[in-house]
């Protein structure tokens, strides 16, 4: 194998190493993906006067939960609030794991990265509880377009969390071996994984108010 130039060190004129430019380009495409989802949400919500209204038959079925006739009241704000905190905290632990590597403290790195993974796991558990509560009340994507949007957007976001969890888990476990052989390259990897992870956090920051609070 030949060495690809600027795999580790930055190219002088762009000031970037390859993977960093690569991840930003990937995130740009992610912006367009979630942009399309948000755009669809706006279009559907403003286009259908009954978008937020729970149909009678479902409202009756909901019983005690059906006092309100607006879909967004069915979502669990406290749980989502908790999840927001979990995700924000995981963003800090992620960036701290990178700081630890910059300070050449591998033990601290393991700690912060481990915490990041735990937060991701916690986020998924809370998400599962939320979904489960919906299903147990017979609320599915087909119940109405608000729920359809809710499940699609949070579901796609959850897939991104799982993706991040896999990558971070790898970098915490088997992938961490690289620290011994190529510390600089490994630090770059953490930075790149971090950029992705912060983006996942960023998406949630917009998802949370637009789905739960409005």
């Amino acid at each position: 194998m030949v060495e690809i130039p600027y795999n580790v060190e930055a190219r002088p004129d762009t000031g970037l190493y390859n993977a960093k430019l690569g991840i930003w380009l990937f995130l740009a495409s992610e912006v367009m993906l979630f942009g399309a989802l948000f755009s669809s949400y706006v279009l559907l919500r403003t286009g259908d006067p009954n978008f937020m209204t729970i149909p009678h038959e479902i409202a009756e079925h909901l019983g005690g939960h059906g006092e309100s006739h607006v879909w967004s009241d069915q979502l669990n704000v406290p749980l989502a609030f908790l999840n927001t905190l979990v995700l924000i905290f995981s963003s800090v632990t992620m960036v701290m794991s990178w700081v630890s590597l910059k300070l050449e403290d591998f033990g601290k790195y393991k700690l912060w990265m481990g915490l990041t993974c735990l937060c991701a796991l916690g986020f998924m558990v809370i998400k599962a509880i939320e979904y489960n509560a919906k299903f147990s009340h017979d609320l599915f994507p087909s119940s109405g377009n608000f729920l359809a949007i809710y499940f699609t957007m949070t579901g796609l976001h959850a897939l991104h969390v799982i993706g991040g969890l896999i990558v971070n888990g790898y970098l915490w476990g088997p992938g961490a071996k690289m620290w011994k052989t190529e510390p600089e390259r490994f630090t770059n990897r953490i930075e790149v994984a971090g950029l992705y992870w912060h983006f996942v956090d960023l998406v949630w920051i917009f998802l949370f108010p637009s789905l739960y609070l409005l």
Binding site: G15, W24, L25, V31, M32, G35, S39
Partner: peptide, 19 residues
């Protein structure tokens, strides 16, 4: 770096158009 800004600016423009 500048390159990143340029790419993100482009993305933001198209994001607004798409929105």
């Amino acid at each position: 770096r500048q390159a990143i800004f340029a790419i993100l600016l482009l993305t933001v423009i198209f994001f607004v158009v798409l929105m």
